[in-house]
Design a protein around this nucleic acid. Structure first.
Lengths: 233, 233
DNA sequence: CGACCTATTGAGGGGACTCAAAACATGTGG
DNA sequence: CCACATGTTTTGAGTCCCCTCAATAGGTCG
């Protein structure tokens, strides 16, 4: 992802604006650009909570966010991770259906809901794009259902890594700069952190991945990983 | 569910029209009524297939439908069951993201997609209602993710039964006329049919449910069932 | 009645969980 | 810079839950 000429500039607001705008255009939502304001969240901070009144939505400029639900008895299911260029909080009406927390430091653009609603009424293209966003979320949830309903641990982890590699997590060539703890991966994949750890260790043993340091995963051999996603059964 | 005075009438089309209309109004989609045509599907019949071009959407008048995805290697995940009053095929654009099959004989109203689109452009209330439908689907998928990601077999089955009881499956007082095979329940809950069978047998043993005959489940004690949904952990 | 499909029940095995300890990172204050 | 405290990750041992395979029972339909 190139930030045109701004990457070298130390000035922050114009840099962010450029990055934000570039990302927004891709989803046909450049009309939003005029009504957002930049904001920041520290790692671990809550952006919004499940059940809270829905006042604002966000576009992520940098960092990563986890969207999750907690059951009454304290079990957590992470529904999705969102990264640079993704939108959060647009998929509901009155209140947030999921909690959003910063997995690592996040820069985002905040949109006041009432203004978004007004824009939606005026511009059918924005409306269409936002509905497309919800549809995409639904598609992704269906994919996730298959993971949790049909797959074994190795399949889940391997698919997850390949999924991350396709998204914005890739740093240089193949190193995933995943600022994700084992517990987060576990809660996303419906496993325990020990199972995640063991599975990653095994992938490392067979040379599919490398684990250079804490919270970094290097994809060494996609074919071997893909082989793990197939169960002979 | 009462069909006003028509229930006694043997004439079919007006009866169906009344039932259909009544159900549609509840979701703010009565404007659809004028452009639908009644159609039927036998048990097991495919209504539409995943990946097919999206030409029509449906409202279910009676019967039940399963929405599912099949993985390349043949595993099936049922995403949702839909019954009388529910809509299917409205949540996507170009092609169906899920397959729909009749679990038992289905009477439905078919809506040609192009006409629905035209109506949506004209009437913002219809548009709103259809987006609300997608949102509801998304909420339901999130609920399902928790089931598959966090719960044990007994919890899944117990919750499922209570869920059915809340929906349109109830016949008389408490007997669920579930025209669902064990395999369907298994594919919905991410279990095997043997586990479903064993779990139901145990619920029967403790007096929570009765299994009067094939494909009928009688809820005898909701409290006991609810107790099964809680794991002391 | 017999063929077929679905459901139940049993025995055994395996995969993921639980509990626990050790290894490793990261941050803090002396 | 080191010593220490804290939090995360890895690894091990043992258990349990659910799956697999297999046989039996029950229902339905010709």
């Amino acid at each position: 992802m190139s930030y045109s000429g701004h990457a070298a500039s130390p000035k922050f607001p114009p840099f962010l604006a450029a990055a934000a705008s570039e990302q927004t255009e891709k989803k046909g939502l450049s009309a939003l650009d005029t009504l957002g304001s930049v904001c920041r969240f520290r790692r671990g901070e809550t952006i919004f909570g499940e059940g809270d009144e829905l006042r604002s939505s966000y576009k992520i400029v940098s960092g990563a966010v986890r969207l999750s639900r907690i059951t009454e008895d304290g079990r957590r299911q992470i529904v999705e991770f969102r990264t640079a260029g993704d939108f959060i909080g647009f998929e509901w009406n009155d209140q947030y259906a999921l909690s959003a927390e910063a997995v690592r430091d996040v820069v985002a653009v905040r949109f006041i809901r009432t203004r978004v609603d007004r824009l939606m009424e005026e511009r059918s293209d924005v409306r269409e794009s936002l509905v497309a966003l919800i549809r995409e979320e639904l598609r992704s949830a269906h994919e996730h259902l298959i993971t949790l309903g049909c797959q074994g641990a190795k399949e889940r982890v391997a698919n997850f890594l390949l999924q991350l590699a396709r998204k914005a997590w890739v740093n240089d060539g193949e190193t995933l700069e995943v600022e994700l703890g084992r517990q987060d991966m576990a809660d996303y994949l419906g496993l325990t952190l020990e199972t995640i750890s063991r599975t990653l260790s095994e992938f490392k043993r067979i040379g599919a991945i490398g684990l250079p340091k804490r919270r970094q995963i290097k994809i060494l051999n996609k074919a071997k990983l893909r082989a793990q996603t197939i169960t002979i059964n």
